[in-house]
Design a protein around this nucleic acid. Structure first.
Lengths: 68, 68
DNA sequence: AATAAAAGTATAGCATACTTTACATTTAAT
DNA sequence: ATTAAATGTAAAGTATGCTATACTTTTATT
């Protein structure tokens, strides 16, 4: 599933490291999320949505053919 | 993190098996989610929210002290 | 051009969401 | 009271989110 994390992060002029620190994950996790290598957990999705002042539904782009 | 899955499922008079089928997971997964044994993935959370016609933010109860 | 900061790649390992199977208990209907 | 449906428990296995470490490439600044 895709997301708007990189887009919002750049808008706010935040580095991957700063975002990682804010969400209490590693920079690797941010990179992999932004580049679509894996999906966030529900908890991380919630933290990210809160950080950007939006909702999970707004931050993540759910398509209909998503598997688990 | 807690959720309203059992509450909404009973309101709609749906069995765990029926919900599991609708979300393409096993009955075990529904049981464990309802009983708080583990957290849903973002994809499963989205499917469940769609099934119940609500949002992830409404269906799941996020507290401030959530770890990853 | 040189340097540093930021972003990216790769890989091994740990934690946990989810599956599978099998059996036990509770609830509801007859 | 019996039976069946629904819910629950347990435990081993698979898939994947995330960490950790180390190195490379890109971007920005001087």
């Amino acid at each position: 599933m895709k997301n708007k994390i990189q887009q919002l992060r750049k808008l706010r002029k935040v580095t991957q490291q700063e975002l990682a620190d804010a969400l209490s994950v590693t920079r690797q996790t941010i990179i992999s999320l932004e580049n679509g290598r894996y999906n966030a957990s529900l908890t991380l999705a919630h933290k990210a949505a809160q950080f950007f002042g939006t909702t999970i539904e707004e931050l993540f782009i759910f398509e209909d053919d998503e598997n688990l």
